[in-house]
């Protein structure tokens, strides 16, 4: 018998010998898409960082940055910036690790654990960023009150006129309003982007759980 004919005969005979994967086994394979969601979380966090970094860069040399420099904040600002960059880089590392873990997992149980872990990381990341905004603003105000000569002058004038309390009330009220606006914009941004990704992850998680049951 010709070699190719023999091969064809064997090929046909083998038809029934291949492993038969069940519906659930195949389904779990396509749930691998979780890894692409986690990859996006990693990429978006990097883009977001680049965005804020870009804004800081653009602000350099403007009147705002001149004013900041006049406040002589370097002693406080530099260590704070270093710490926050370190924390942010640590988050990048975690996001990347999550992505690597998830993309190399084919066990549904481990995949579920990793999904939960990723959700937690994102949650902490958002909390950290919101808290940074909050403390950053508070710190800025504290310094403005104590160090900004223009501002101190205004305060002194107000205390001479006897309406110091009103001025403080106005400051506190406007700060609160500004903070609420800033935090809500950021929270909305996170809710839209990370929230969407997390909802998809959650969807995958529920399906996996359903399959496990």
């Amino acid at each position: 018998m010709d070699g190719l004919d023999l091969l064809k005969k064997d090929w046909k005979k083998s038809e029934s010998k291949y492993p038969k994967l069940s519906y659930n086994e195949i389904y779990k394979m396509i749930l691998k898409k979780s890894s692409s969601i986690v990859k996006w979380i990693f990429i978006i966090s990097l883009l977001e960082f680049a965005f804020w970094f870009g804004i800081a860069f653009l602000l350099k040399g403007t009147s705002f940055s001149g004013k900041m420099q006049a406040l002589d904040l370097d002693a406080v600002l530099i260590p704070i910036s270093i710490i926050s960059y370190l924390v942010i880089f640590y988050f990048f590392y975690l996001f990347y690790k999550n992505y690597k873990n998830i993309s190399s997992t084919d066990n549904a149980k481990v995949l579920m654990e990793n999904i939960l872990k990723t959700r937690r990381t994102v949650k902490y990341y958002v909390i950290f960023n919101l808290a940074s905004i909050f403390f950053g603003t508070a710190l800025g105000i504290y310094y403005a009150i104590n160090h900004d000569s223009e501002f101190i002058e205004k305060l002194q004038q107000a205390s001479v006129n006897g309406n110091e309390t009103t001025l403080y009330a106005i400051i506190i009220a406007s700060v609160i309003v500004m903070l609420i606006i800033a935090v809500s914009i950021l929270a909305l941004f996170y809710w839209l982007i990370y929230g969407l990704l997390l909802r998809r992850l959650n969807h995958n998680y529920k399906e996996l759980k359903h399959l496990e049951a």
């Binding site: 038809e15 291949y18 038969k20 994967l21 069940s22 195949i26």
Partner: peptide, 9 residues
């Protein structure tokens, strides 16, 4: 998944 299960060979 159903189609794939059927044609997995």
């Amino acid at each position: 998944v159903e189609l794939l299960e059927k044609h997995q060979n």
